[in-house]
Design a protein around this nucleic acid. Structure first.
Lengths: 191, 191
DNA sequence: TCGAGACTAGACAGACCGGTCTGGTATAGT
DNA sequence: ACTATACCAGACCGGTCTGTCTAGTCTCGA
């Protein structure tokens, strides 16, 4: 891929950027193709030659968010040495996300709310959730939890719950009680 | 309202029943008016004279689910005496819900995923969440929690997280780790 | 017996949906 | 100079969306 300046993004990149804004803010079902291509400044045929279908565009949009989240989380995790600090770094990254001014909930929860069974959306969701669960499980194991899978599951519940609460209760501070609860559960799981 | 046998439901009742099935299973946005009236065996004009708009039908559908959940939960709570048992009864009711064969996630999370801001959907969501938070806070206070609001918030996170996990991870057992985590958090909050 | 109210069936309007296709332009490699 | 590629603008297709309207049926109370 050629090196481009910020103003010379490829059509595919502009489409993904437009999809990221519109799909996330208003929902993948309520936003039509026409609005995406208008925001991207791209012809409809270009979208279909690049992605093939709206479903695949949605999948690419989710995949992009998954990779971005993974990189941000891993960067935060790698700043610390002890497993316990690394676990808390996951929640710190979450806290930053929930505090962003345009936070509209977990993109994966939202997208899968009305996804048809077997849709490409579900594959992207499974990838994201599998990665996060795996990370939490590994860190829980390294921390010495008696039952790492169970602790990881519990931390995942808190993670999801904070995302839901931040959106539905209009309170970006939901990561704070989640973090405190995570600490309590980690402590309890080390006996 | 007249007493009716099961086969003589009013048009309004049949519409609500059809909406409950279709909206919950497939999503409020992907299911159109035509499918609702077809399932209800009702004319379109009847729907609009009874509810005025699709948005109001959705609101009524959510209100119905809210009332049903409240009654089921309160019935379970009232079976116990101690605040701690009563808190756990909330999670036991949740566990039953998640284990139902046609569970498709929290109806309120799903409906609000693509709701337009200011839509009637948001009012129904606020009512439901306010009730649940209030119940958890009251029980946490009766249990003697040092910070009842915080404990209630944490339990609410677990409650939401279990709903999300049960759907997204295809695992109806998500209420089990949630219940264990709730017990640990309650114990830790009583110091 | 008559008339009000609740209901049904279905045409219709106007907008929007995802997706295909035509036609034309700009650029880069050979 | 020729060609392949990438892209744009926009007409167009068949279908679906919410919501309105007409017209007719059924029931029940006065």
């Amino acid at each position: 891929m050629a090196v481009r300046s910020a103003e010379q993004l490829s059509a595919r990149e502009r489409l993904l950027a437009a999809a990221n804004e519109l799909f996330y803010e208003e929902g993948v079902n309520t936003v039509g193709i026409d609005r995406v291509i208008e925001r991207a400044g791209v012809a409809k045929a270009t979208l279909y030659s690049a992605f093939g279908s709206k479903d695949e565009l949605i999948r690419a949009y989710l995949e992009q968010r998954y990779q971005a989240r993974r990189e941000r989380t891993m960067r935060a995790v790698e700043k610390f040495e002890t497993p316990r600090e690394r676990l808390m770094a996951v929640f710190d990254t979450l806290s930053e996300s929930l505090s962003q001014p345009n936070y509209h909930g977990c993109a994966f929860v939202n997208a899968s709310a009305e996804a048809r069974p077997g849709s490409p959306i579900e594959r992207a969701v499974d990838g994201y959730r599998g990665w996060l669960r795996g990370l939490l499980t590994q860190l829980a194991r390294e921390a010495g939890a008696a039952d790492p899978e169970r602790l990881a599951w519990q931390l995942h519940l808190l993670y999801d719950g904070a995302s839901v609460s931040a959106r539905m209760d209009h309170d970006p501070g939901a990561a704070f009680p989640a973090r405190l609860a995570a600490e309590a559960l980690i402590s309890a799981a080390l006996d």
